[in-house]
Nucleic acid binder design. Sequence first.
DNA 1: TGTCAGATCTA
DNA 2: TAGATC
DNA 3: GACA
Length: 594
Amino acid sequence: MTPPEYAAKVLTKFQPLLDRTPPRKLFLKDKNIFYIGGDLKFASKTTRDKMDFVRKKGGTVVPVYDPSIVTHIVTDTTPIPTLKALALKSLTEIPDHIPTVLWSWITSGNRGKLEFEWMHAAFSSRIDADSSKRSSKGKEAQFPRQVAGTVSGGVTNSSVIDDDHHPQTPSSSLHPSSAAPPFSSAANPPQRTRHASQQCNGPEGDPLAEYYALAAADQESAESNDSSDGEMPMDEVVKQSRRGFTCDQRNTDNGHCLNQGIIDKLQELMELHKEKLSDHDRWRVFSYSKTIRALRNHPVQIKSYEQARAIKGVGDKTARKIEEIIQTGELRRIDWEKTPDVESIKNFKGIYDVGPHTAYQWYNAGCRTLDDVKARKGGITLTPTQKIGVEYYDDINSRMPRSEAEQIFNKIKPIALEIDPMLFIEIMGSFRRGKADCGDIDILITRPTHDGKTHAGVIRSLLTELHVRQIITEDLATPDNFDGLEATYRGLCRLDFRSRRRRIDILAVPYESRGAALLYYTGDDIFNRAIRYKAGSMGYSLNQRGLFTAVARDPNDRRKKLTKGYVIASETEEEIFKILNVPWQEPHERVRAV
DNA sequence: TGTCAGATCTA
DNA sequence: TAGATC
DNA sequence: GACA
Ligand SMILES: O=c1ccn([C@H]2C[C@H](O)[C@@H](COP(=O)(O)OP(=O)(O)OP(=O)(O)O)O2)c(=O)[nH]1
Ligand SMILES: [Mg+2]
């Protein structure tokens, strides 16, 4: 568990406490305090009293320093211990919107109203730090949107906004500044109807106590090796990386999200970028999805550019967008990206085996609707797979209840076991993650070799049998080798003759690869990419066969492997997690998609 | 400025 | 090899 | 789009 996660947990856990005291006395409401007492590892009596005080006044005590969460650092000690507590090497690394104040600032609230932060600045060098600081960054000029119609007849809609020339904010002249309603109305009301509950009391009445030990322990293990850069921590200096690995961070079980308004807008924009063709747009989607995930797990309402910017993965551009959403409730870039092709492209891509390239090809051939495609308008051609995709368009694009996936699997499994009772056959993907609905059925097959036999040949038998029984009805992609230990199959299947068609995938792997295969096939896809990325950053390579070391890559084309490397783990998921220093997560915890 | 996962199947 | 998909 |  990472420090921010502790913070998040604590924050959500004690939110209900805020309800008790009359609002006007809660002068620390919305303040997230990181308090630095005398001793880091041990919360002394007075420290605990102070924390209690903070909470009583509506504040939140954050047990671990995370600049994206903390609003105030309260310290009565000198810079050195303070920096140590923050894991920073210089006071200048503290963002300007987080003031470092003395305890006296907190108590000043007792006189009716908190005094100015600068009056209680702990360090003169940071006297200018101010929590009320808002973006006030150099405002970007406004740009007129270019000829709107340029792309419509054009070929490659790649969301061609070169950011240097067309900033995210289209001119208001085109979108007559229709004074949008303040964002607050949309995102504000975290109706606190619940009351403080019993569960909040930990040992000794300090509900945070249990977290200190955990956090401290975790700090050590996390910071000692997992700097997310994979570089050696040279000195004592631990610099706060802005990069982290998505696979390391579980989702916080946020019932409701304080930043839903922001998320909705960014998501809408992301969905538009998904329909574009260029690599640039693909990476934007990658980036936005990261931001959205971060916002989902963020326990605090984002209220400023600075606050947004403090979140890992949120850079200048996105922070500006968030600021716009906060201030106006709108995001003009959405209208910019909402080009006429988006809808057609989205529909075309719904056809199985049609991706961005084919979709635009057809669009440029004059197709606009599915009927156009069916009519082969513009002389377009379809592959056999795509024809199946058109025929079962609706089936393929609907998800099935978990129970149906289970029923189908329960038909398939006995058939497989009849072929070879020693088979290991499991249902994977979203089903294994416990999802209530499944986009398809993913089946993993392998077989122990203790008795000197293998599952060679069973894929052929199984597929044949499933066809005969009309469980599998169409093939989409058949294995390279039907009789090997490795095979991937894709097709359509159905529970019975009156059921919808469902997508089915079968993966067979050698027994030694079962751990890596389980890991891969459980996903989700984002989690896989993240853990593989982490592996790569640590000098390993991870795929469905195993975790490899010493994989040499072509420096010119990094996708090309020069050496296969050596397997160092593949039989269990656990060993792979362990080596990669990824906290163990059950399948249902490996959800990263937004 | 390069990287953001790594593999299989099809045409 | 590129495109689509897992 | 973000980050090293
Ligand atoms: O780009 C991808 C897609 C999928 N997978 C892995 C993870 C995923 O869990 C599994 C099965 O893929 P599928 O497309 O079936 O996803 P799912 O997680 O099962 O979700 P759904 O319910 O949409 O099928 O294959 C990847 O590693 N990368
Ligand atoms: Mg699936």
